[in-house]
Design a protein around this nucleic acid. Structure first.
Lengths: 212, 212, 212, 212
DNA sequence: AATGAATGAGCTTTCATTCAT
DNA sequence: TATGAATGAAAGCTCATTCAT
């Protein structure tokens, strides 16, 4: 007597992952509008009504993709920046994780993200996503400030964090368009701007990654 | 024998601008795919075939919008940053001009840009556009560097410029979502990150805009 | 539990035939350009997207019609002219079959054919079709020649066959415009010209169909 | 003092011929539907409203082309076949004139004709045109018959003439598709079929053009 | 659970044709 | 006379989405 049904048909969870996999592939390759439910279903090796049954409309399907990939990314970053390190080290690790992730999924995350930015219906999901990131970064900064016994208004912190996140997203985009570029090096350069600022860069200073 | 405005049979040049105006509005409001040529024509107060006659296909029309708005923006920025000022002053002016422009055309440039990134066919136009911006920013930095007798590889400059532009774009986005925010103040904060870097910010330093 | 006809959800093969039937009707009635996919779908009792799903674009649909009707016709003719009869008998039977077929499908084949000649994209299909016919006729002639121990260059045969086919097509056209005319009699007259030639006709000779 | 107006603008008749010239060019090159009034006007070096003013709608314009070219052709043929020659000689001259004409206007007449056959609205004009030809041919045959003291029903004559005309048209078409072919030779072969008939050809007879 | 059959709705694009100057 | 400006109307094609089996 088995502990569960015999799955001649694959179990629901597995099927869903297959669908998401192919959806991510197609959305990335063709863009949100260029992708057709037909092709997605075909690539998933399944019939269209199944896709609707499991993951809802095209919009919902895209959100699901966004969600899954975004969660993976946030985890990758959060996992990299241990809270008990100095601020610059944490920032560096976070950045490296972020750009590393994007570099490794050049055709996945970055493109989905780009698509999402273009369409209003995904604003909500994006906002949530970005909020998590900003929160992480702002947390780092706040932590460091408190360690020095100083304090800053929340909105100011948010704007700074937002700028940092924005710059990183931009570089992520740039990475997606430059397959030959090295994420590690790009992260270093970003760190230079972010940590030292253009002013000091111009005066010859530069930041170097700690030796691992 | 009134010399008053004739509402029909306008000369080509005038009609074209009307069309572009309407197209920018609609593309921004609905997105590239969401926009229909019907609506664009209607808002322009003209029939569809005229749009095709004067500005070509939807794709070409979008490129035309991108081109016009992009050119305006670049001019606004380049005009603001006089070449004979110190680097931080130039950067500041450029930033302020950029965020000011975006703030003033909240429904124009930023949205078009976002749309364009999502669709392959506009890659070319975008590359050109961005190249101009990056060139302006990189030019500022390069100028400052040479003044100090130092030199940096082009790609490095490009990445830094890219990060700065990206951070600004991000804040532009943030501005678009926070109508109550003050562009001037946002520019100042951005300048802080960009010029001083997070490191110094954390140590209590801060940059202040020069008194006009 | 009726086994009566279901009017919806028919299997693909059936629908395709319905579509082709309707397409042939409409193309013949309105001409290739005059025909609209809308009307074809409507007459087939189905929605437009199905037509596209099963038979492709308008051009492909027309080719499919041409192909189906042409094949039917060639079969009718080839089946009529048994290879072991004398040449004139075979020619006669072929002719009769051809004009009979056209007479029976007055609104089908002849009109499609006429349409196809006018449009470049169908040249290929037409060439193939006509080649089959010419081949059949040339085959008859060649067979007869060899039986007499003589031989003629292929191109000459082709031209003669072409002329015969052309004359027949012309009469087919004439039939289409004279609904009261008798295909059988027309075939006899054609046979007179084709077999005896105008020269002998003028001298009082005439050819009579063999008593069946 | 000039005997007429000074034509800074070309006189109407000349303009019309220019338009017809370019119309024939475009109709032949693109087909009736593929041709656009825009292109015709452009090629004629004139504005569209002028075309409408001078030659009416697209349909009327096409009929005008058909008419002019058809008339030229009929004249060429009628002029070639002098009535006081023996029947075969007249037939031969007519044929040669016809195929010669078509060969010389490969992109003109044959293509217009092909187009016209495909569209109902031109049936009338075509009927008239063909009637003139059939009349000419039937006249030749009738003349020859009467010379021998015999007589044939009109419809029979018409069918025979029709077959001959049809065969010739077919070969004209064939010529249009085979630019390398020699009209003279094609005419000879046609004459063989038409005059001697397939029966005698098969027995080794052949007709030769009279030495000029 | 799974799918082939089916469609409503909409979009871009083109063209013959006519005003108004 | 001559033309740039303007449009009504329609057609081909695609797609997300849902029945009926």
């Amino acid at each position: 007597m088995s502990t569960g049904p015999a799955f001649k048909r694959l179990p629901r969870a597995v099927r869903q992952q297959q669908m998401l996999d192919s959806a991510v592939r197609i959305f990335s390759r063709r863009g949100y509008h260029g992708a057709s439910m037909d092709e997605i279903a075909e690539v998933a090796g399944i019939s269209k009504p199944m896709v609707y049954a499991y993951l809802g409309t095209k919009e919902e399907l895209f959100v699901a993709c966004l969600h899954r990939e975004g969660t993976r990314m946030v985890q990758a970053i959060a996992g990299a920046a241990a809270p008990d390190l100095p601020a610059d080290e944490r920032l560096w690790r976070g950045l490296r994780a972020f750009l590393g992730f994007v570099g490794a999924h050049r055709d996945g995350w970055a493109v989905l993200y780009r698509q999402a930015r273009a369409e209003q219906p995904f604003a909500r999901e994006l906002t949530v996503m970005r909020a998590r990131l900003v929160e992480v970064v702002a947390g780092m900064l706040d932590h460091a400030l408190r360690a020095e016994g100083r304090e800053v208004a929340d909105t100011e912190l948010e704007v700074v964090a937002y700028a940092l996140v924005g710059a990183s997203e931009s570089l992520a985009d740039w990475l997606a368009d430059h397959p030959e570029a090295d994420p590690e090096k790009t992260a270093t350069q970003m760190m230079n701007v972010a940590w030292l600022g253009a002013g000091q860069l111009l005066h010859g200073l530069s930041w170097r990654p700690p030796v691992a």
